[in-house]
Each structure stands twice: as structure tokens, then as C-alpha cells.
Design a protein around this nucleic acid. Structure first.
Lengths: 231, 231
DNA sequence: AATTTTAATATGTAGGACATAAGTATTTAA
DNA sequence: TTAAATACTTATGTCCTACATATTAAAATT
């Protein structure tokens, strides 16, 4: 008899720790039972009994769910399910020095994609007041443009404001955590920012242009970033 | 003397547990020391000593970092830093029944934004082979379009393929976790999918059209979703 | 020198003990 | 009788000790 492809026939030994398994089981349990935020969960001792693990292991798993914002616990009252913070745990690990290069590149592209897709929501939600504030940022920038140190700050301020204008808090937070990554990947460049289309140009497009014109402007504004993308 | 605004003067009592603090301290420590993936970390006992907490508390914090993929541990060898999975923890909590409505809406918009921003990368990376596969999906859809049950599957297949064509694994995974949310928000609708621009139209735009034409087509394809966005 | 055996060590798991906060029941005082 | 003070109960938070287990390092054997 032939031996054949071993790692198809033999299941890889699971290096899973018990806390890992308990975590999975708890997540399954919460979803299967379709608990809603506010619902009370079983007590620790009941869970240890049901799962057949020590309180220690259980608490390591619960600690994870607590980090995800999935559960909240109070003394004596026990645990309740709560609405998780979907970005919270992502924020913790957003460090360009820790994340691998492929993912960094992916994130870079992700941000460009978002930036190009913003026009639709932006034109739906833009207000006169917001545009004025954006213009102020762009003008401030022009005044102090000589100083290299300020350039990054202005970049951040301007694009940050744009995301804020979408009224989408999640989008805003998301872009905020992408910033350090973006900064890390472009900080060595000495490319004069903006290219053909400056921030001020974008403001004007936002004021008087169409959605498509704005998008086209944004594309040209980001052109030198797109240039760097690999096929 | 005036009392004034209390909750500015008096710091809110921190309900933070020790595991929370240890987690923060560890994250700070890892970033400050600028450890790189592969570097060995101090042993549990050294950390308990340095932090002045029990091994139990420390392990609850470590358990979280382990979930984030930030650290890996092996018996006897200790712990090493590793490249975290930035989406992993997000995937765990992506459940439309648990996430609050505002965030759900945010996510919905986030996906639309991505979809509108895809054209640039798509036109950079599209290959003949991919387009053929996409066309196949679109044609298959046309053949079985009568059955309501298949509609969602086709939606998923088609748009999933598009994301895959970007060659961006993170983007792909991201869209994949957004799917259930999207599905949850639109499942009650009986709007005939596609509107003016069908999947097959999009394929043709991808084949012979320009980047901007494709984007315009995508916009019209998604038009009835955009219609639902609130100002 | 190569191989086997033994020892050492760091993490994984278990279980007991007590602290603490927050409800609940009971007693006390007006 | 009711309000306030007190004692009790309970579930989580923290600490500690002990031992299992895997894996590397050292020692012993051939």
C-alpha cells in the first residue's frame, strides 16, 4: 500500500490551547443562541462546569471576549453581552513595524481605494460649513508650505477632514488608524506633495464641480501614489 | 467658589481591571522597545515580577495578545513577537445581530465606498483570464436568474470575484466579512437586482471600457443602494 | 562521535483561598 | 409602619501553589 500524501491523510495536530477552544465555543454559543446586547450570560462557575475546564482557562477566554467589547462584566451582576467595538482590536495592532510587508502594502491600497470611493458619500453629505473649514485648512497649508515638518500634518488634517465630512464615524476611525501605515510607507519620499491637483483645487471642485470631476481631481492628487503600485 | 463642570474636574473612576492595564502596558512595551517579529519576549515570571501582578492576571492579558496574533508561545522556548492578523479579531465579532445599528449602517457605506474605489486597482491588475472567469459567473447567473434563492449567491460570487481580481488579500478578506452585514441590511428588499447596469454590462465595461466608464457603470449598478443613504 | 538518557525549564491547566463590589434580606430606630 | 442602618449573600477579581507537558540542554552510554 502506498503512503501517498501524508498531510492530507493525517490531520495536523492541533496546537490549540484550551483557552482557544473555549473562546471558539463561547463565540459559537453566543451567536447560535442569538443573544442580543444586554442579555445576561451564564456565570463563570456554570460555564466552567458546562465546558469542563478550570476557571483559569475560562477566564483567559472571557478576557478575550472582554477585549473585543463583546461582553461586559460587573461584580455580583455577572456578565452581559454588549455591542462589540469592531475596530478596537484592530487599532491595537496597527503598527507599521509589526505588520508584515504584504499586509502593509494591502493597507496602502485599501486606503487609496477608499479615497477614490469617497466622492459619492461626500457629495451626498457635504455642507457649506464643512467646505469652509476644509478651505481654511488648505489655505493655512499654502501659507506655511515651505516648512517640511508641517507637510505631513497638513496632509493628515486635510484628508482627515474629508473623512469627517462623510459623517461616517467608522470610516473616520478606520482612516485614522490607516494613517500611521500610510505615513510609514511614504515618509522617505521627497515627492513634492500634490502633483497637478492641490488641496485647494480639491476644495474648489467640491464647491463648484461635479462628483465625477472631484473624483478625477482626487485621482490626480493621488497620482504619484498610484504610480507606485505594482501590477 | 463655583463647582463648575464636575466631570471635567473629576476624573472618571477607572473601571479598568488589572488585566486591562497589563494589556495596555504590554502593548506599549512592545512598541516602545520596537520589537520585531521573531524577537523573544521576557518570560512570564519575569513579567509578573516587573509588573507586580499575579501570573493569572498576566496570562489573561497575554491571552488577548495571543488572540490578536501578536505573540506566539511555545513551551520551554517562551514567547516571540509575531505579525498580527489585523482582520482576525474583527472577523470574530462580525455578526449583524450583535453590532449596533449605527455601525451597521457605517459598514454598509464603507462597502459602497470600497466598491466605488475599486476601479483604479482593478484596471491596473485585471487579466484576460480573470475577466473570462467573471464573465462565466455573470452568464451562469443569467441562466438561472429566475430562482430567487440563487440571486444572493450570484451577487456574492460576482462581487467576490471582483475583489479577488484586485490581488489584494486583505481587501478580499475585508469584503468577505462585510458580506453578512450587507446581506442582512438588504435581505428584505425585493428590488430587482442590477437596475440599469447588469453584471454582464460590468464585465463588458471591464473588457472594452475605460476606468471611468467602469466606475460609472458600477455606480449605476449600485444606484438603488445609494438611493437608500440618508443625508 | 553518535545516540540515548536524563535533567532542567517555561508554558499550560487545575483548584483553593480570599478580596471586593453590589444586590438582598434583616434588624434597628424614629 | 416606614426609613435607615446592618448583616448576609453572591459573582467577579486577584493571588498562590502544585503539577502536567513539551522541548531544549546536558549528561551518559555505546
Amino acid at each position: 500500500m502506498e503512503i501517498g500524501n501524508l498531510h492530507i491523510d493525517i490531520e495536523k495536530v492541533s496546537h490549540k490551547t484550551m483557552a482557544d477552544e473555549v473562546e471558539t465555543k463561547l463565540l459559537e454559543y453566543l451567536k447560535r443562541k442569538s443573544f442580543k446586547p444586554g442579555d445576561a450570560l451564564p456565570k463563570e462557575m456554570e460555564l466552567t462546569a458546562a465546558l469542563g475546564v478550570s476557571r483559569n482557562v475560562l477566564r483567559e477566554a472571557l478576557s478575550r471576549l472582554r477585549m473585543l467589547g463583546l461582553i461586559e462584566t460587573k461584580k455580583r451582576r455577572g456578565m452581559v453581552l454588549s455591542s462589540p467595538d469592531i475596530l478596537g482590536s484592530m487599532e491595537r495592532v496597527m503598527d507599521p513595524l509589526i505588520i508584515d510587508d504584504t499586509t502593509l502594502q494591502d493597507i496602502f491600497e485599501l486606503r487609496l481605494t477608499l479615497e477614490m470611493g469617497l466622492a459619492d458619500i461626500l457629495f451626498l453629505r457635504k455642507t457649506k460649513k464643512d467646505i469652509e473649514e476644509l478651505e481654511k485648512i488648505a489655505l493655512q497649508e499654502k501659507a506655511t508650505r515651505t516648512k517640511q515638518n508641517f507637510r505631513i500634518k497638513h496632509e493628515v488634517d486635510f484628508h482627515g477632514k474629508i473623512y469627517q465630512m462623510t459623517g461616517n464615524r467608522t470610516l473616520q476611525r478606520f482612516q485614522n488608524m490607516l494613517l500611521p501605515i500610510f505615513g510609514h510607507l511614504v515618509n522617505e519620499e521627497k515627492v513634492p506633495i500634490g502633483g497637478k491637483v492641490s488641496h485647494l483645487d480639491l476644495v474648489n471642485l467640491l464647491k463648484t464641480g461635479t462628483r465625477e470631476q472631484f473624483r478625477q481631481g482626487m485621482r490626480e492628487h493621488l497620482e504619484h501614489h498610484f504610480q507606485k503600485l505594482k501590477k
